[in-house]
């Protein structure tokens, strides 16, 4: 556990949630792993030629094709008689996973490849400068869904990719947050121990994109879970088999400490939006039975 397979010296911001996610994922997987990454913040910060933060074999091809590349790695190992050599893990952001790469991901899940796909969810296109993705939450101001005189920011809720992944009938789907490192490590270990396609979505706050101090990454991550805006659960063979119970906090506690939601606190319409966000949290709590 002491071994760092995601090496220090990468170019991530201080307090980068994605880098913490990568470090925890590799602590869960150990060194016998091949990692595939799509284009994104993690790829850029970890691989400035001729340096690399990856102490495990790693490949980046393009933005939307990581799941297909991983499929290729998997069948190659099989064909070459090297299947026992390594587990295969994709580590990609929400833009690469939930938006542009959803087709290849669906193909990989449907074909049953023995790959663990991990999405680090920082809820926008951070690498290109904080543009809205389909994983951006309702009410968040981004550079392409900015709050303005007639806008309260993003007007749609997060796309529910764990549910879409589960609908493929895959053996294991899980969510986690970097705020709970042991849970991330445990879920990665569990995922790679299961044969077939697995999907994990790890909430990874982005200090730069969300607008908070880099020392608060874990705190913010915890608030997302404690407000029920990012529910933590596992789906095994199509059934919810575990949830992280919480002593629930109001969503304002989470919203008020981030620049991306700050505009909501300044107007009557913003107040309406906060109510809507509370409704989303309430629905999550009810759906998964989150309340202690």
């Amino acid at each position: 556990m002491q071994e760092e397979l995601f090496a220090p010296g990468h170019r991530g911001c201080a307090g980068c949630g994605a880098a913490i996610a990568a470090r925890l994922i590799l602590k869960g997987s150990g060194k016998d792993v091949i990692v595939v990454s799509p284009t994104g913040c993690l790829e850029v910060i970890s691989s400035p030629y001729p340096e690399s933060a990856w102490e495990v074999p790693w490949i980046h091809s393009l933005f939307e094709n990581a799941a297909a590349v991983a499929s290729g790695v998997e069948v190659a190992l099989k064909s070459l008689g090297r299947k026992d050599e390594a587990k295969i893990i994709v580590i990609g952001g929400d833009g690469a996973t939930i938006d542009i790469g959803i087709g290849p991901l669906s193909g990989m899940l449907e074909r049953g490849h023995d790959v663990t796909y991990v999405c680090y969810d920082n809820e926008a296109y951070m690498n290109t400068g904080i543009q809205r993705s389909s994983s951006t939450p309702y009410g968040a101001s981004t550079t392409t869904s900015p709050a303005g005189k007639v806008s309260l920011g993003e007007n749609r809720p997060k796309k529910n990719l764990p549910a879409i992944a589960a609908a493929h009938g895959i053996p294991y789907v899980g969510t986690a947050s970097i705020a709970y490192p042991k849970d991330v490590i445990r879920k990665v270990k569990k995922a790679i121990s299961i044969e077939g396609p697995k999907y994990l979505q790890i909430h990874a706050p982005c200090c730069t994109g969300w607008g908070f101090d880099g020392s608060k990454t874990i705190e913010i991550g915890r608030l997302a879970v404690e407000t029920a805006l990012f529910p933590i659960y596992e789906i095994t063979d199509g059934k919810v088999t575990s949830v992280k119970k919480i002593k629930r906090k109001p969503v304002e506690d989470y919203l008020k400490v981030q620049r991306r939601f700050r505009h909501l606190l300044k107007s009557d319409r913003g107040e309406e939006a906060i109510k809507n966000i509370q409704d989303i949290a309430d629905a999550n709590a009810e759906k998964f039975g989150l309340d202690l």
């Binding site: 690399s52 990856w54 074999p57 490949i59």
Partner: peptide, 12 residues
Amino acid sequence: LTTENPLSFGTI
């Protein structure tokens, strides 16, 4: 790509 000699492919 092999664990015997972990290299990075497709770096920036």
